[in-house]
Design a protein around this nucleic acid. Structure first.
Lengths: 239, 239
DNA sequence: CCCTTTTATAGTCGCGGTGACTATAAAAAG
DNA sequence: CTTTTTATAGTCACCGCGACTATAAAAGGG
């Protein structure tokens, strides 16, 4: 069929699902809500909701993100479309097509106090499953996508506060990739990548921890990393 | 809103749009259809159509691909979801959410003889615009995605016949990236990447051209390339 | 106050992938 | 047979990177 003219069509419900990720205490966490009704009552699920007639999926996702996190200003947060899930049986109640998004947050505001009755919580990524519907797959796809984005973009700074140390940045990589990294090498690569981070002029430093204070950095504004910061190759498997 | 319970919803029309790409005579081409009706009557557009109630977007995309290309068996062709376009005003007639896909074909079967009245044609990528609706953007996103996929996956073989020469494979990279590549270096990198290509045992060779016959290869079955085959860095822009 | 612990930062060494380039081989065209 | 064309082999220097060692600057404990 060409250009979808002169053909009947059936209506679908269109929703957005959000995989909201953060790094807390060195571990990757995801924002989940507990379902109050069937199906999957009592099961945890990704936050989400219907797309309204006058808004795009991106707009709906950002609105839901604000509602779920309770944050006043979500305009600066990273929000990225993941993919669309459209299996006919993915929701037993009706035909619903869901556009999934991934959002990245710095230090997490305690769940929130949003609109609905069900509770929302930050859950460690590894202990999140099983989730309702096909959300296990959506969450896995989001994790995979974010892990790849860290290699080629400056996205890791979206997990960090406005000013951060290289140690904090490294914790983001280690939490998302699930791999420890060599600190001197990580430092060398980050600083050798133009536009990744910029030192905070005021020779500022961070107190609170032990040991030597670390210098503070800001996001450098570069969208893509040259050269990329590749994760330790999990090679060595002959086809 | 949590888990989209107890909330009203509005129906949407859900369609798929296809960016079907091929490499013909060393140049990237895209499959387009000419619109017969308003809006955008006479303008070229990406093929597409409505998702039926019982099928997923992927199923609908493969069905449309078969209809548009006229190929009997499209089960082996590479089909990948690109992203979803949901701006409220993207179709002036109604609220339609479109899931875009990218398909890759080897040597192109002449457009086809599909179901509808409008004609379909292979159009050189550079001369394709302007297209109807937001299809310029979809096509650009598809090009960008495919270019990136060539770096990290063995996807380039999807543009080639079952057996191909390294010169043909190089033409795929050059056509998609729009950059000439050094032949000895390209050869070295392809052969040094485990699982990318496998030599055809029969010491087979391809005639038809001038010069020394080239050895034939088959896809090696590797999904990801280690190391990746990166495109010439377009760096040199200070942030 | 000294010494240990902890964390940050600097530097070294060798390997491997890569771009730029040259050289040789094997076919068709004239 | 010579030229042209394409495929394939090889060289060389640079550089990103993993593994590792060394130094600096703070807090803590006796």
């Amino acid at each position: 069929m060409r250009g979808y003219d002169k053909h009947a069509y059936e209506p679908f419900a269109v929703t957005v699902d959000l995989a909201v990720l953060t790094v807390r205490a060195g571990a990757l966490h995801v924002l989940l809500v507990e379902r109050g009704q069937e199906p999957y009552a009592g099961r945890w699920a990704l936050p989400g909701g219907f797309v309204q007639p006058a808004e795009s999926a991106e707009t709906a996702a950002r609105r839901e993100l604000a509602e779920e996190t309770g944050l006043a200003d979500v305009s600066g947060l990273h929000l990225e479309q993941l993919r669309t899930y459209s299996e006919p049986e993915r929701d037993p109640r009706m035909r619903v097509v869901s556009v999934a998004f991934t959002a990245l947050l710095p230090d997490p505001p305690e769940p929130h106090g949003g609109g609905d009755a069900a509770q929302a919580r930050w859950v460690p990524y590894d202990g999140a499953r099983p989730l309702a519907f096909d959300h296990d797959r959506i969450l896995a796809d989001a994790h995979e996508r974010v892990g790849a984005r860290l290699e080629h973009t400056g996205l890791a700074t979206a997990f960090c506060p406005p000013e951060f140390t290289l140690g904090e940045l490294q914790q983001v990589y280690e939490a998302v990739w699930g791999t420890p990294l060599d600190r001197p090498n990580f430092r060398r690569k980050v600083l050798a990548t133009p536009g990744f981070v910029a030192p905070v002029a005021g020779a500022a430093r961070l107190t609170g921890g032990r040991g030597k204070p670390a210098a503070l950095y800001r996001p450098g504004g570069a969208a893509v990393l040259h050269p990329p910061l590749l994760r330790p190759s999990r090679e060595g498997r002959p086809a």
